[in-house]
């Protein structure tokens, strides 16, 4: 994987050819009431790579993304985007929320949704400038949704909706993409083609972090992984992270002990 030669701003204080991590999370601790959901999680997602956050249900995967972005309050912790605090680097991050967080009956077309990616650079009170129209259309084409631009958003399939969201994130022109469970409720073929798209985006130099629930595809498709179970269990190149031993530590081994989730995980990891 040739992650080092691509574009993006060089960061001072790093070795030659090396970029600051795209996303760095330090000591992130979040609790709901007295129950800790994330405990002292350190993670560092390299630039120009396709990274996955994996872990069992209730491991705090989505919470980690939301807390990193400041969408939910954290008890402690710090997030750096390209070495800068996340608050100062909003324009460097594009977030793709879980699809059930959105009102699909909303009277809005595919193109209008993608155009929202241009809202932040446009600023308050102003209309999205005309010169952005070409960019929006490009992003739609990029995800293969060019022919659907006039559709109402609710008339799309799950996979198509996900593509629209990715197009919106692309329109933000941010080097870092954070995606929350993009493949839940999407069929296998669509998942594969979206993964292909993400890989292509990665090869262009973008950094992508995906909250992912399917260990089966992690190995083949991702470069880097964080295995999470309230704490960070393991982090690093996928081959090192997704092993029988680490999975056992995160999911618990033996279908008899924890059940199907873990059993599946192991059978996939082989």
């Amino acid at each position: 994987m040739s992650a080092h030669q691509d574009g993006g701003p060089p960061t001072a204080g790093r070795g030659a050819g090396d970029r600051a991590p795209a996303l760095e999370i330090r000591r992130m601790t979040v609790s709901y009431g007295a129950r800790p959901v994330l405990w002292d999680v350190d993670a560092s997602f390299p630039a120009g790579r396709l990274s996955a956050i994996v872990g069992p249900n209730g491991a705090g995967k989505s919470t980690l993304l939301k807390a990193a972005l400041g969408l939910i309050p954290a008890d402690a912790g710090q997030t750096l985007v390209e070495g800068r605090p996340v608050g100062a680097a909003r324009d460097r991050v594009a977030y793709v929320p879980q699809r059930d967080a959105v009102d699909w009956d909303f009277p809005i077309t595919v193109r209008e949704v993608v155009e929202m990616g241009r809202y932040a650079p446009t600023g308050w009170f102003r209309r999205v400038p005309r010169r952005d129209a070409a960019l929006v259309d490009d992003c739609l084409e990029r995800v293969g949704m060019g022919d659907f631009r006039g559709r109402q958003i609710g008339q799309l399939s799950g996979g198509q909706r996900q593509r629209v969201f990715i197009a919106r994130a692309l329109a933000q022109q941010a080097p870092l993409l954070l995606m929350d469970e993009p493949f839940s409720g999407v069929d296998a073929r669509t998942e594969a083609s979206i993964l292909e798209l993400l890989a292509a985006l990665r090869d262009e130099g973008r950094s992508i972090v995906v909250v992912h629930h399917d260990l089966g595809t992690v190995r083949g498709a991702f470069d880097h992984a964080l295995l999470l179970n309230v704490r960070a269990v393991a982090e690093g190149p996928v081959a090192e992270v997704v092993t029988r031993e680490t999975l056992a530590r995160a999911y618990g081994a033996g279908a008899d002990a924890v059940g199907r989730d873990a059993g599946e995980a192991l059978s996939w990891a082989g």
Partner: peptide, 8 residues
């Protein structure tokens, strides 16, 4: 230890 071994 619970997070790691609890399933056992």
């Amino acid at each position: 230890a619970w997070l790691e071994h609890g399933w056992k």
